[in-house]
Protein backbone atom coordinates (compact mmCIF):
# COMPACT_ATOMS: atom_id res chain seq x y z
CA UNK A 1 0.00 0.00 0.00
CA UNK A 2 1.13 3.55 -0.71
CA UNK A 3 0.07 6.89 0.65
CA UNK A 4 -0.14 9.89 -1.61
CA UNK A 5 -0.07 13.38 -0.13
CA UNK A 6 -1.95 15.86 -2.28
CA UNK A 7 -1.52 19.58 -1.65
CA UNK A 8 -4.33 21.73 -3.02
CA UNK A 9 -3.77 25.48 -3.04
CA UNK A 10 -5.79 28.46 -4.17
CA UNK A 11 -4.33 30.02 -7.32
CA UNK A 12 -1.90 32.80 -6.36
CA UNK A 13 -3.93 35.41 -8.25
CA UNK A 14 -7.02 34.83 -6.07
CA UNK A 15 -7.71 36.52 -2.77
CA UNK A 16 -7.62 34.01 0.11
CA UNK A 17 -9.89 35.79 2.55
CA UNK A 18 -9.41 33.21 5.32
CA UNK A 19 -5.63 33.45 4.92
CA UNK A 20 -5.82 37.23 5.15
CA UNK A 21 -7.73 36.95 8.44
CA UNK A 22 -5.19 34.52 9.90
CA UNK A 23 -2.35 36.83 8.83
CA UNK A 24 -4.07 39.66 10.69
CA UNK A 25 -4.36 37.51 13.82
CA UNK A 26 -0.68 36.56 13.74
CA UNK A 27 0.27 40.22 13.37
CA UNK A 28 -1.95 41.12 16.32
CA UNK A 29 -0.17 38.45 18.37
CA UNK A 30 3.03 40.38 17.77
CA UNK A 31 4.44 38.49 14.79
CA UNK A 32 5.06 41.67 12.87
CA UNK A 33 7.28 39.81 10.39
CA UNK A 34 4.20 38.08 8.92
CA UNK A 35 3.71 39.35 5.38
CA UNK A 36 0.89 37.09 4.35
CA UNK A 37 -0.82 33.72 4.85
CA UNK A 38 -2.29 31.38 2.27
CA UNK A 39 -4.37 28.42 3.42
CA UNK A 40 -4.54 25.23 1.40
CA UNK A 41 -5.57 21.65 1.89
CA UNK A 42 -3.54 18.53 2.53
CA UNK A 43 -5.31 15.39 1.41
CA UNK A 44 -3.81 11.99 2.20
CA UNK A 45 -5.07 9.09 0.13
CA UNK A 46 -4.22 5.46 0.78
CA UNK A 47 -3.81 3.52 -2.43
CA UNK A 48 -3.36 -0.16 -3.20
CA UNK A 49 -1.35 0.93 -6.19
CA UNK A 50 -0.01 4.43 -6.87
CA UNK A 51 0.07 5.33 -10.56
CA UNK A 52 0.56 8.91 -11.70
CA UNK A 53 -2.18 8.78 -14.32
CA UNK A 54 -4.78 7.63 -11.80
CA UNK A 55 -3.70 10.12 -9.13
CA UNK A 56 -3.85 13.00 -11.61
CA UNK A 57 -7.29 11.84 -12.71
CA UNK A 58 -8.54 11.88 -9.12
CA UNK A 59 -7.20 15.42 -8.66
CA UNK A 60 -8.64 16.70 -11.94
CA UNK A 61 -12.04 15.04 -11.48
CA UNK A 62 -12.71 15.82 -7.84
CA UNK A 63 -9.95 16.80 -5.44
CA UNK A 64 -9.04 20.14 -7.05
CA UNK A 65 -11.07 22.62 -9.08
CA UNK A 66 -8.83 23.85 -11.91
CA UNK A 67 -10.76 27.12 -12.10
CA UNK A 68 -9.55 28.20 -8.68
CA UNK A 69 -6.92 25.75 -7.46
CA UNK A 70 -3.53 24.22 -8.23
CA UNK A 71 -2.31 20.92 -6.86
CA UNK A 72 0.84 18.93 -6.44
CA UNK A 73 1.40 15.58 -4.83
CA UNK A 74 4.02 13.24 -3.46
CA UNK A 75 3.85 9.50 -3.04
CA UNK A 76 5.22 8.32 0.28
CA UNK A 77 5.91 4.70 1.01
Amino acid sequence: MATVRIYVTLKPSLLDSAGRTVAGSLQKLGYSEVQGVRIGKLIEVQLADATDTRIKEMCDKLLANPVIEDYRYEVIA
Binding site: S17, N65, V67, I68
Partner: peptide, 17 residues
Protein backbone atom coordinates in the same frame (compact mmCIF):
# COMPACT_ATOMS: atom_id res chain seq x y z
CA UNK B 1 -23.61 23.90 -11.48
CA UNK B 2 -20.22 25.64 -11.70
CA UNK B 3 -18.52 22.59 -10.17
CA UNK B 4 -20.32 20.42 -12.72
CA UNK B 5 -18.97 22.59 -15.53
CA UNK B 6 -22.46 23.63 -16.66
CA UNK B 7 -21.74 27.26 -15.79
CA UNK B 8 -18.53 29.29 -15.99
CA UNK B 9 -16.47 30.49 -13.04
CA UNK B 10 -16.46 29.50 -9.38
CA UNK B 11 -17.70 30.80 -6.03
CA UNK B 12 -15.19 31.58 -3.30
CA UNK B 13 -15.47 32.69 0.31
CA UNK B 14 -16.93 36.19 0.63
CA UNK B 15 -14.29 38.89 0.53
CA UNK B 16 -14.89 39.90 4.13
CA UNK B 17 -15.39 36.32 5.41
Amino acid sequence: LTEAGLLPGALLQNEHE
